[in-house]
Design a protein around this nucleic acid. Structure first.
Length: 259
DNA sequence: ATTGGAATAT
DNA sequence: TATATTCCAA
C-alpha cells in the first residue's frame, strides 16, 4: 500500500528535506478534554500519530505496559491525579522518553522545575502547529545522544556549555566529519563514552535513588540501565565527579542556575 | 573472585 | 581536560 503519496509537498520552511517523521508516535496527556482534543488535532495535522489520555495514571500504565511504543510524551503541568513532575520523573527514569511540558502560562518557576526534572522542552498554551512541527527534533537529538558512535564527543558541546564546563570552548575550525561507519569492519572502535546531560542526569538520579553513601559503580550502572556503559565508565565518571573542586564548582553553577 | 577507587595513561 | 585503563586493597 502506498500510504504516502506526494509526501514531498513539504513546506518551504521545513528545511529538513531528508525525512520528516510522519507518524511520530506522540502520547499526549491532559486532563482538560478540550485542550486534549485541540492538541490531538494539531498533532494529527502535523502528520504525527497521537494517542491521548486524560490522566497521568493511565499514561503511565500505557507506557509501562509497553504495548504501544512512543517517541515523545507531551504532558500538561497541571493535572489532578498525579503531579506532572512525578510523571516526568518516572518516565525519565524508567523509559527515558523525551518529555515536553505544557503549561497555561509561562511560569518561570514551573519551567525551571520542569527542566530540572528532565523535561526536554516547555510549551505554553495555546500551542501552535509550528511548535509541534519541531518536537520531532527532540526525538532525533535523543537518538543521537544515545547512539554514542562518535570519535570524540564534541558533538554535544552545546550541552556541555550549559553545564558551564570551563566556559572556554575551542572554536577551532574543527569541522566534524559525518563519517558514516559502514559495518565493513568490526564496529568495535573503542567508543569513548560521552557524558551528555542526559547521561549525567541519569547518573545523578541513580545516585539519588541509591543514596549518596551507598552509591557504588555497580549499583549506579544497574540503576542507570544504559547498555553501552560499563562499570569502569561509571567508576571513572564517579571519580572525576566527586573530586572536591569539581563538586564545589558544580554546586556553584547549580546555585546560579536555580536563582 | 570480584569490586571500589586511587593512580596513572591516553 | 575528559575519559580510559591499570593496579591494588578489601
Amino acid at each position: 500500500m502506498a500510504a504516502m503519496d506526494g509526501d514531498q509537498r513539504q513546506m518551504m520552511e521545513g528545511a529538513a528535506e531528508d525525512k520528516f517523521p510522519d507518524g511520530l508516535r506522540v502520547l499526549a496527556v491532559d486532563d482538560d478534554c478540550v485542550c486534549l482534543k485541540v492538541l490531538h488535532n494539531l498533532l494529527h495535522g502535523c502528520k504525527y500519530h497521537p494517542t491521548t489520555v486524560t490522566d497521568a495514571k493511565t499514561a503511565l500504565k500505557i507506557l509501562r505496559s509497553g504495548k504501544e511504543k512512543f517517541d515523545v510524551v507531551i504532558t500538561d503541568v497541571r493535572m489532578q491525579d498525579m503531579d506532572s513532575f512525578k510523571l516526568l520523573e518516572l518516565i525519565r527514569l524508567e523509559m527515558d522518553l523525551p518529555v515536553i511540558m505544557l503549561s497555561e502560562d509561562c511560569d518561570k518557576k514551573a519551567v525551571t522545575e520542569g527542566i530540572n526534572h528532565g523535561a526536554c522542552d516547555y510549551l505554553v498554551k495555546p500551542v501552535h502547529t509550528n511548535e509541534l512541527k519541531n518536537i520531532w527534533q527532540h526525538v532525533e537529538r535523543k537518538r543521537k545522544s544515545e547512539a554514542i558512535r562518535h570519535i570524540s564527543g564534541d558533538d554535544d558541546d552545546d550541552q556541555r556549555a550549559q553545564l558551564g564546563t570551563a566556559g572556554k570552548s575551542n572554536d577551532g575550525a574543527n569541522t566534524d566529519e559525518n563519517k558514516e561507519n559502514t559495518q565493513a569492519s568490526t564496529t568495535q572502535k573503542k567508543p569513548k563514552v560521552g557524558w551528555t546531560i542526559e547521561l549525567h542526569t541519569k547518573f545523578m538520579e541513580a545516585i539519588n535513588q541509591i543514596g549518596l553513601y551507598r552509591a557504588t559503580p555497580k549499583k549506579i550502572l544497574e540503576m542507570m540501565n544504559v547498555d553501552f556503559l560499563t562499570r569502569q565508565n561509571v567508576s571513572s565518571h564517579l571519580q572525576v565527579y566527586f573530586r572536591p573542586s569539581f563538586f564545589i564548582f558544580h554546586m556553584f553553577v547549580f546555585h546560579l542556575f536555580i536563582v
